[in-house]
Nucleic acid binder design. Structure first.
Length: 369
DNA sequence: TCGCCCTCCTC
DNA sequence: CCATGTGAGGGCGA
């Protein structure tokens, strides 16, 4: 029996949250911005509502450019407030948990879900379930969203993309090929500019063409993993399951520096809050890390990294700062150029053993130690 | 396995 | 001229 997989995407999320909080914003262009603090208006657009999009404003656009396009349209320019959106997102995810069999959040404003069991594989019932989800979110938060249903994650994601804003696309398993085949291959999840142009060079433009492409040709070009994925994605047969409760495997923080520098002490002081933030995340998730990475983004926006893996996990803030400083000393020495942005990443996360509760059980991993 | 880089995802 | 921030995963050399 084919699965019933869904993908839900909250429409222009940050801007919509702002509209709900201040209804007077409705009717004007709303642009939520990430100000980098380097100069008055440096930074980019985080997201824009549809009024602003109609005027040519979109995510990733420099704020200065957006303001120019919005000149004379009485726009609302709002500073991004990530914590506010986290709170709203958390409430919605909780609501969703009660309405689906398995929920896999994949970002602040989106999630995959599996409702195969509760619908017994019936796409009519699935449509009703999706409608109910949309109504619940509208009733409780006044937010619209877009939902796609299909037999795989890739198909569901295509569906939610086709529906937005405030839409619902149901791609029943039998119609998968006829819906997917005409679409550009670049619409597939995981097919970005690089993969897309490589496919084009092979004469593959549409999903249908990709589905019929020679597996061995694809493998030569993309390697074993990616080629297998591409073929499965194109036929809607990707079988990646929806998994609940995935824990993050890394945390990182990157800041734009007030001014370009290669001085490790200067970088460390500008990164101090970021390191503190990462430490807070480690503490909150009861984890420590084995690998610390210094990330330097140069003035040409190329990225350089230097990392170190420790034998013993690093968990305290001071050790994190020490490791970061050391890594930036080495990175700066090897590059000899200024950074525009700098960051830290911790990975190789390992759970801190909770002695009080763990001691009551036999840890099966012990047997291998 | 580690270290580094690339690609992609979202907004 | 202007270019944020977070995280997953794969390739590849050593």
């Amino acid at each position: 029996m084919p699965r019933v997989i869904g993908h839900i995407d909250l429409d222009y999320f940050y801007a919509q949250v702002e509209e709900v909080e201040d209804p007077s914003l409705k009717g004007k262009p709303v642009v939520v911005c990430v100000f980098s603090g380097r100069t008055e208006d440096s930074g980019v657009v985080g997201t824009a509502n549809y009024k602003a999009r109609a005027l040519g404003v979109h995510s990733g656009m420099p704020i200065v450019q957006a303001k120019n396009r919005l000149d004379g349209s009485d726009p609302a320019i709002i500073r991004m407030n990530h914590e506010k959106y986290e709170v709203v997102s958390g409430r919605i995810m909780e609501l969703l948990e009660h309405k689906v069999d398995v929920l896999e959040p994949t970002g602040i404003d989106e999630a995959f879900f599996d409702i195969t069991t509760s619908t017994e594989g019936d796409y009519g019932r699935a449509r009703k379930a999706a409608e109910s989800i949309k109504e619940s979110i509208l009733a409780s938060e006044r937010l619209t969203c877009s939902v796609g249903l299909g037999r795989s994650k890739v198909v569901a994601k295509l569906g939610s993309d086709m529906a937005k804003p405030d839409g619902l696309t149901v791609i029943v398993p039998e119609k998968t090929a006829s819906v997917l085949d005409p679409l550009p291959a670049s619409k597939l999840y995981g097919v970005g500019p690089k993969t897309s142009s490589a496919l084009e060079q092979m004469g593959v433009r549409t999903v249908g063409e990709l589905a019929k492409a020679s597996p061995s040709d694809l493998e030569v070009r993309f390697g074993r993993k990616l080629s297998a994925y591409l073929l499965a994605a194109a036929t809607g047969t990707d079988d990646d399951p929806v998994v609940a409760g995935l824990e993050p495997t890394q945390f990182s923080r990157i800041v734009t520096l007030k001014r370009d520098t290669r001085d490790p002490q200067d970088v460390l002081s500008q990164l101090a809050d970021g390191i503190e933030h990462i430490h807070g995340k480690l503490v909150a998730s009861k984890k420590s890390c084995r690998t610390v990475t210094a990330i330097g983004i140069l003035t040409d926006l190329s990225t350089k990294t230097k990392s170190k893996t420790f034998d013993a996990p690093v968990g305290d803030a001071a050790a994190l700062r020490d490791a970061t400083l050391e890594l930036f000393q080495e990175l700066s020495a090897s590059i000899g150029k200024d950074y525009r942005r700098a960051g830290v990443r911790v990975s190789g996360l390992t759970g801190i053993e909770d002695q009080s509760s763990l001691s009551e059980f036999v840890d099966p991993r012990r047997e291998h130690v």
